[in-house]
């Protein structure tokens, strides 16, 4: 009949399986990439690769939290854009204004996240529609703040971002920092409630979980991670761009799916999404270094992503058909 027969003990292996699939994809991507990209393992190439990974990794963590809560945030890319242009306007090339710029970016993420959260949790609009709508508000505001690409980030910041500490690229440390942040959040009550609300909102409500507040928190956390992504974008590119976040939104959703988090909510984690984000970034690299003609690049990129999504989906299919 329906595919709803889930027998005992079938769930857990499925989650582990999807973790294995993600790691497998990462390994393949790394091997292919290192074969194609000259000096893939050299210090310089590693540094610049990691430097481009950070924004997607950060936004993928944010998207994971929202998805775990049972929602989705299609405005995260626009939030990255808005936070980055606001920060670049605030810092205006001066190192002593860096703290204000960081605070401004985080403030933008917080406000955007809270707005999404309120619209979804209190006005009860469908997350996919609500955040699609707010994404236009945020991109529109970004254009008002910075109509054309420009503004500058202090040189010290861009240099530090590509430097290395104890032989480890700063960007890699940033990724480890994001992982640490996720690790800490996992141990916090808010994330536990996010899982509960995403898994079964009614049961969570009956069990004293503050459902609406938890939903808002999830979007706020999403916004804060978008702000971190914005800071990484600025450190990487050195200037502001009112369109920079456009492609990040759907990439973040793809990273979440590749990472094995269920779009239905309540199941998964950001560890997988971070790997998923790196897989996606490597795929872009591979397509670039494989000498795919420019006109076909996007097409090939898309095809590979579909393949990755399909691979990530296989364990889920098996889980649904334990009887087979």
């Amino acid at each position: 009949m329906s595919g709803t027969f889930s027998l005992r003990g079938v769930r857990l292996p499925a989650v582990q399986l999807s973790g294995a699939a993600t790691v497998g994809m990462l390994v393949v991507a790394v091997i292919v990439n290192s074969a194609l990209q000259p000096n893939f393992w050299s210090g310089y190439a590693l540094t610049s690769n990691f430097a481009t990974f950070v924004p997607l990794v950060a936004i993928a963590v944010g998207q994971t939290i929202v998805v775990l809560s049972g929602g989705i945030d299609l405005s995260l890319g626009a939030q990255v854009t808005l936070a980055s242009v606001v920060a670049v306007r605030v810092v205006d090339g001066q190192l002593d204004r860096l703290p204000q710029a960081v605070a401004a970016a985080l403030g933008v993420g917080l406000v955007c996240g809270a707005l999404n959260g309120l619209v979804v949790a209190l006005v009860r609009l469908q997350p996919i529609v609500a955040t699609f709508a707010t994404s236009f508000v945020f991109s529109g505001l970004a254009l008002v703040v910075l109509p054309t690409p420009g503004g500058s980030v202090p040189l010290e910041v861009t240099t530090a971002y590509r430097a290395a500490v104890l032989g480890l690229p700063v960007a890699l440390l940033a990724i480890l920092g994001l992982a640490l942040l996720w690790w800490a959040l996992r141990r916090h009550r808010v994330l536990r409630h996010v899982y509960a609300v995403g898994g079964d909102p009614e049961a969570a409500y009956a069990s004293l979980v503050p459902v609406a507040r938890t939903r808002v928190s999830a979007y706020v956390l999403g916004g804060l991670f978008a702000a971190l992504a914005a800071l990484a974008v600025l450190a990487n590119t050195g200037s502001g761009d009112p369109f920079v976040g456009n492609e990040l939104t759907l990439a973040s959703v793809a990273a979440v799916v590749i990472g094995g988090t269920s779009l239905a909510g309540g199941r998964g984690g950001a560890g997988g999404s971070m790997l998923g984000a790196i897989v996606l970034a490597l795929v872009t690299n591979i397509v670039f270094f494989a000498d795919v003609p420019t006109t076909y690049r996007q097409l090939v990129n898309g095809a590979v992503i579909i393949l990755a999504l399909a691979l990530a989906g296989i364990p889920a299919l098996q889980k649904r058909r334990p009887a087979a």
Partner: peptide
């Protein structure tokens, strides 16, 4: 109607 959350 049980209020256990299956994934927890």
């Amino acid at each position: 109607q049980l209020s256990v959350v299956g994934d927890l």
